[in-house]
Simulated scan of single mutants.
Amino acid sequence: MNGVTIGQAAAFVGVTVKTVRHYHRLGLAAEPERDNSGYRRYGSADLLRLVQIRTLAAAGVPLAGIGPLLGADAAPFAAALADVEQQLTERIEELTARRDMLHRLADGDRALLPDRAVVLLERMAGLGFSAEEVAAAREGWILARALVPDGFDDYLTEVGHAVQDPAFVTLIRRGAEAAAWEPDDPRLAGLATAMAEYYLAHPDRLATVTGLQARTENATRYRLISRFGNQSPAGARMADLVEAALRAAGVPVPRS
């Protein structure tokens, strides 16, 4: 009896019987003839072919590209392997980036925000902002970075400068507290006026209001960002009052 059964061949080569049959279906290896007992017998040439296929597949060559390589001369064989190597390198880089993202996800905020934004959020907590206020800022920044990515870094720079001013911090904290008021609370108008007057007296701080719309003409994006942290009726009304006062003073603030 010459040759071995498909099960023995698979075991010798280091694959499963199902894999060997798959190679046959793809035309990578011809099925041996059956012997007198009706079994297919795999000889040394068949085993060599299977080893070559398995080795190329294990090296990362797609099964669809293995056929031409099996009979290729040295030069095209080397060129094809170089191409596969490049594809594997790109895949490794992609997987590495995904792994790094998983690490950032485990680190919370750093998955969606740059490190300097996380530092600013930590600083806000140290300035007395509540956990809810810091969380609202974080979520608003995530949205802003997605909608206006080219202006986000400059915006963070302006916010970093602004929080060094105690007067600015006091106003922003008062605004955060006002979000819990009733929308017809008469104190809203006075607070909105104080905010607008502060911005007009400190033009360099205006970027914290208009910076996220400065590089886009899409007012809808600005509206989504500016209203994210003002979702309460009182917060939305106060933002409208501040923006109206700034427009009246000639500051270009988009309308929805």
Rank of each mutant, 00 (worst) to 15 (best):
D107W: 01
R99P: 01
F77W: 11
Q86D: 14
Q86K: 14
A64D: 15
V61I: 02
R91T: 14
V51F: 08
L69S: 05
V84E: 01
T55F: 02
L63N: 00
L70N: 08
V61H: 00
E93P: 06
Q87K: 14
A58V: 11
A75Y: 13
V51D: 08
Q87Y: 12
A72Y: 13
R54C: 02
L81W: 05
L88W: 09
P62I: 04
D100Y: 12
G108Y: 09
G60T: 12
V61F: 00
G60C: 04
Q52G: 02
F77Y: 13
A111K: 02
L56K: 06
A111H: 08
R91L: 11
G108Q: 06
I53V: 05
A57W: 06
L56E: 04
A106W: 12
H103A: 15
E85F: 03
P76A: 06
T55M: 01
A74Y: 14
L56Q: 14
G60Q: 03
L95Q: 15
L81H: 03
H103C: 09
R99I: 02
L88T: 10
P76V: 05
D73L: 11
Q86V: 10
M101N: 15
A64T: 15
V84K: 02
R54Y: 04
R98F: 03
A57G: 04
A72W: 12
A80Y: 01
L95W: 12
V84H: 05
A64I: 13
E85G: 07
I66T: 01
D83C: 01
P62D: 07
V84T: 10
D73N: 11
D109A: 15
P68T: 03
A78Q: 10
D107L: 06
P76L: 05
A59Y: 01
A59C: 01
L56T: 14
D107H: 07
L69Q: 08
L95D: 13
V51T: 15
R91A: 14
I66A: 00
V61C: 00
E85A: 13
T89W: 11
L88K: 05
A75P: 01
L105E: 13
L70T: 13
R54M: 02
H103G: 13
D109Q: 13
V51G: 09
H103E: 10
A58K: 05
E90T: 05
R98M: 07
E85K: 10
G65H: 12
I92F: 10
V61E: 00
P76Q: 11
A79M: 04
T89S: 11
E93N: 08
V51M: 09
V84N: 06
A111F: 11
E90I: 04
L102S: 08
Q52I: 07
L69F: 07
A59R: 04
P62F: 04
A80E: 03
E94A: 03
